[in-house]
Design a protein around this nucleic acid. Structure first.
Lengths: 206, 206
DNA sequence: TCCTTATGTGTACAATGCTCACATTGATCC
DNA sequence: GGATCAATGTGAGCATTGTACACATAAGGA
């Protein structure tokens, strides 16, 4: 039988096995957790590895360097983001409501995941490391496509038409800017409910 | 006489004097330079001090820690930003043109100073260190006031009226979002001239 | 002139990102 | 089965960083 004297992978729940199984994913999750706890966009590679129960150097088998890990986190963020946008759109029945739903979801996502949102649109993602990462680029453009197709449906025009492109850009910029301003607390002095604010600002546009 | 054997402050142009004169300012400038060279939002406190020709610890006489330096840089950024917005407004004659001028200046500033812009609206400024810094808060709200007063003039209403507040918010969000999208290179695939894009997106709103 | 405060230096420490050499694992081929 | 080998992990070590503490020097008023 295969039950040798040495411990098998399933002998212990505390992951005593040499090979982790999916270190890459575990590191992304751990780093994300650290960011949430800190509130900022930065984290310690060593600390993340420590949490996973692995040496720092093990992470270098899955990521070329720390920036690469951050890019992976950003990509994961964009995937969740796209999903959130689609879920938001699904709440509406008319094309207009679906569009508004995405807009609300956009801002809500930013407010719910400030660190992740900042990382996704931060300098690392925009830098060389991010632009050369196919996974990130793909996940990023997928998010825009959700908005774009929503607008195309609303405007009843092909998604690639110039009118839709510019309109999508406007809508995107609006949601994006509003998200950031809320994150920065720069709207804290306004006596308005954030959710109401979203509707007021966004709905005036469409 | 005051000419002792030791070197006087003015004996040498290379700043041999013990007391630097304005280390605080010099450190801000050096750090800003480093950020520009790196392209990112981060820099090394030690490297900045090195450039100024001073020990790292000297900087702790002027800033409680590195975050404090970053906050000071952000504040300086907001001051330049306000000036840029005012300059942009000054190019127009009508209220509408002045408003558009600010909008263009907003986006142009972001594109011209990506690192600084990111720092200004980054997590450090939004965090505790930033919110508790009077200088930053003041400089930040001054920038918004430029937009607000411009809109108030255009709408011919008092700056504090609800209509102006919401409109300013929309305009701000639009410019802010557009700036970020451009910085992130997320609009690079569009076959549009950025400057034309600005006008197209902004002018449709007012 | 002395004393005080502001400003700077020197030494030191823990933490971090990263590199290189080595160890272990698990699948594949004979 | 056992040998082979790439994938995956460990360990020691290095330069750099942010920060703290004790001390040195400068500048200016009593």
């Amino acid at each position: 039988m295969s039950t040798s004297g040495k411990s098998k992978p399933s002998d212990n729940q505390k992951d005593p096995r040499y090979h982790h199984g999916n270190l890459r994913r575990a590191l992304v999750d751990a780093a994300l957790g650290l960011m949430v706890e800190t509130g900022g966009t930065s984290f310690s590679l060593r600390e993340a590895a420590r949490r996973v129960g692995v040496t720092v150097n093990a992470s270098y088998r899955h990521f070329r360097n720390k920036d690469a890990l951050m890019v992976a986190i950003a990509a994961e963020g964009f995937r969740r983001f796209s999903q959130a946008l689609m879920d938001g759109a699904a709440t509406g029945s008319s094309a207009r409501d679906r569009l508004l739903g995405s807009g609300r979801a956009y801002v809500r996502f930013a407010r719910a995941n400030p660190s992740l949102f900042r990382l996704m649109f931060g300098s690392v993602s925009a830098g060389d490391a991010g632009r050369e990462d196919e996974e990130l680029v793909l996940a990023g453009s997928a998010a825009l496509d959700v908005l774009k197709s929503g607008l195309a449906a609303f405007m009843n025009k092909p998604p690639e038409s110039p009118a839709v492109t510019v309109a999508a850009l406007r809508a995107w910029a609006l949601a994006h800017g509003l998200s950031y301003l809320l994150l920065d607390g720069q709207l804290a002095h306004l006596p308005l409910d954030p959710d109401a604010l979203i509707d007021q600002v966004i709905s005036a546009d469409v």
